[in-house]
């Protein structure tokens, strides 16, 4: 019974897909089947992986946030400029600053959505413009912070702890915390409750507005964290970094089975979705497909996932109806 439930779950299916993709690519090109290749892939996709968690929370309450990469750029640019002009040196401080900026950014989006009743897509679109522009403004209109300007901070992207990149430790920490919070704490279940039936949640005493504010604030926090990771991993900060990356994050969640209408989705699903998104660009060159094809294949994949999902659901419904006796 328990096994059946596990194998029937969407996460299991995704897990199989991830393993299969990994296996096929490894067979064609054994170079991929190495610790370094895998950790490199994780490191390079740290930003998407981390932000997918925040997006999971936002989508669970039926929302969406397209301002996240603007938040990332603003917070990343902030430390980029601070480092460049020698105002700060501490890596820890950099992280705190980006996360602080991100939290404020996310909270503003959340306030607009939860308190002023603005639809999430519109609210986050407005802030997408605003934060991106602020990133430009603090960069004195388009200055970069290159690797040399970043000082010791860029080492965070390459340093290791217990044989594993620090960046990966950050990812792991985020996923572990989220997994526990979403599954085993009241606040996590309240997020699911709000997404599943906001009205009922209100009646049972859950502060729906506060939950919405919270998920957007956490989203901002993670976008800020991703700002630090982006600057560290790519050893540079520029105001147009990660532009359009929010779509990758949303796509990762969708592939991972997070419902757009709220209430459905899991941390494991988001992880697997983000991994699939990360493996596509890795896999293509190994399969001798031109990198130019990358985006189209990604798009087709997202479309295929959602369409197949609907078809499967329809078949399941039809079968359930056919079984009903009359």
């Amino acid at each position: 019974m328990k096994l059946k439930k596990l194998t029937g779950s969407r996460e299991f299916l995704l897990f199989i897909i991830v393993i299969a993709m990994f296996a096929i690519v490894s067979i064609i090109n054994p170079a991929f089947f190495s610790f370094k290749a895998v950790t490199d892939m994780l490191r390079n996709n740290a930003v998407t992986l981390v932000m997918a968690l925040g997006m999971l929370g936002v989508m669970l309450v039926g929302g969406i946030d397209i301002s996240i990469t603007s938040t990332l750029a603003l917070s990343g640019m902030a430390i980029g400029m601070l480092l460049k002009y020698g105002h700060i040196q501490s890596t820890l401080l950099c992280f705190l600053i980006t996360m602080g900026i991100g939290t404020v950014c996310g909270a503003l989006v959340g306030l607009l959505i939860s308190r002023a009743g603005v639809p999430p897509i519109i609210a986050s679109m407005g802030f997408m413009y605003i934060y991106r522009a602020m990133g430009y403004l603090i960069s004195h209109g388009g200055e970069w912070a290159s690797a040399a300007a970043l000082g010791s901070f860029k080492n965070f992207g390459t340093d290791k702890l217990l044989g594993l990149s620090k960046v990966i430790w950050v990812i792991i920490a985020c996923y572990v915390i989220f997994f526990i919070v979403m599954k085993w704490t009241r606040i996590g279940r309240q997020v699911y409750a709000v997404g599943s039936n906001a009205e009922a949640a209100e009646v049972s005493g859950i502060k729906v507005k506060n939950i919405k504010l919270m998920v957007h604030t956490v989203m901002g926090l993670l976008a800020g964290l991703a700002g630090s990771l982006q600057v560290a991993v790519y050893a540079s900060a520029m105001p147009n970094m990660a532009q359009g990356g929010e779509m990758d994050v949303i796509a990762a969640c969708v592939i991972g089975g997070v419902s757009m209408s709220g209430g459905r989705g899991s941390v494991v699903g988001a992880l697997l979705g983000a991994l699939i998104m990360a493996m596509i660009p890795k896999a293509l060159p190994l399969l001798h497909i031109d990198a130019l094809w990358q985006n189209m294949i990604k798009g087709v994949m997202i479309l295929a996932v959602v369409v197949i999902n609907v078809i499967l659901q329809r078949i399941a419904n039809r079968n359930a109806l056919a079984r009903r006796e009359m």
């Binding site: 779509m247 798009g299 659901q313």
Partner: peptide, 23 residues
């Protein structure tokens, strides 16, 4: 597939159409 949210469908075609242009 009317049950699909337009946001998701057009998100994927957004990636696909530009992807084709890139190719």
């Amino acid at each position: 597939f009317p049950e699909l949210p337009p946001m998701i469908v057009t998100l994927s075609t957004q990636i696909i159409f530009r992807g084709i242009a890139e190719i």
